[in-house]
């Protein structure tokens, strides 16, 4: 599981946010487009791509994209 690939997969869940805005250190909750629906899309993507089931608390607990990556990695 590679961080760069994970960042790209997260960026793909946003329709209007430029992918260049999403990096390892991005606090994704603060992005204008972020909402419950984007969180749900990310959880669905993580299930599809990494066979990991995130909980709502996992999304809340992650500040940056890299935090989320580490949570997913710890569950593989």
């Amino acid at each position: 599981m590679e961080l760069n690939e994970f960042i790209k997969n997260v960026a793909d869940q946003f329709d209007e946010t430029d992918a260049s805005e999403i990096t390892a250190t991005t606090a994704f909750h603060n992005l204008d487009e972020y909402s419950s629906l984007i969180a749900l899309s990310i959880m669905s993507m993580v299930d599809d791509e990494y066979d990991v089931q995130l909980k709502g608390d996992d999304m809340r607990g992650a500040v940056t994209v890299e935090d989320l990556f580490n949570i997913v990695k710890s569950k593989i």
Binding site: S36, L40, M43, M59
Partner: peptide
């Protein structure tokens, strides 16, 4: 005060 799954399903 629900999480993103609960809020999405509420909608």
């Amino acid at each position: 005060i629900g999480d993103s799954i609960q809020n999405s399903e509420t909608g």
